[in-house]
């Protein structure tokens, strides 16, 4: 869902829950107790509101967020400069690879950006090589050297 919700879709309590719970939940028997106390509602109302926020599309998920790489996979951002008249043909070739997890068209000379997701690091080079042979285009590879993952917040 990408449509912006009307401003009255959320009340002050909903906004408090979104603002607090995006930073993380205590791993305890009663993880909602602190936010329930702050909001002045019961823990049952907290979970009912979370369910409602999910129904109306204000939140996408509620649960553990994994670092896919720490799970043992290998990932690499890749880019192609695709001649405009070959775009659909190349898109079909690229998307056919199961290693291509997602793929975006972007406004730039490098106009196709995709992520390769493999079980082992050496499979990244193999998949990129197959895509180069099939498309005749150079696959630029941008593996991550360092990740900075701290600040992003969505103020509700």
């Amino acid at each position: 869902m990408r449509q912006t919700l009307p401003p009255d879709a959320l009340d002050a309590t909903d906004r408090l829950l979104i603002n607090r719970l995006q930073d993380g939940l205590p791993l305890t028997h009663a993880p909602f107790a602190p936010v329930a106390q702050e909001a002045g509602i019961s823990e049952t109302e907290v979970v009912d509101r979370i369910a409602h926020l999910r129904e109306i599309g204000a939140i996408t998920r509620f649960g553990p967020f994994l670092d896919a790489e720490a799970m043992g996979g290998a990932f690499c951002l890749c880019a192609l400069s695709v001649p405009p008249d070959r775009f659909d043909e190349v898109m079909t070739l690229v998307n056919a690879h199961p290693e291509v997890a997602h793929n975006y068209e972007r406004q730039h000379r490098l106009n196709m950006w995709f992520v390769l997701a493999c079980e082992r690091p050496e499979e990244i080079a193999e998949a990129a090589g197959r895509i180069e042979r099939e498309t005749g285009l150079k696959v630029l590879r941008f593996p991550k050297r360092h990740e900075f993952f701290i600040g992003f917040r969505v103020e509700a």
């Binding site: 995006q22 204000a58 996408t60 509620f62 649960g63 969505v154």
Partner: peptide, 24 residues
């Protein structure tokens, strides 16, 4: 879950705001 979070396999247990519907 705590051990996986301490080791970074789980980044956090949290709610994910839908930034599109919330206006971003």
């Amino acid at each position: 879950i705590q051990a996986m979070q301490d080791d970074g396999v789980i980044r956090r247990v949290a709610l994910a705001p839908n930034h599109y519907t919330l206006g971003l």
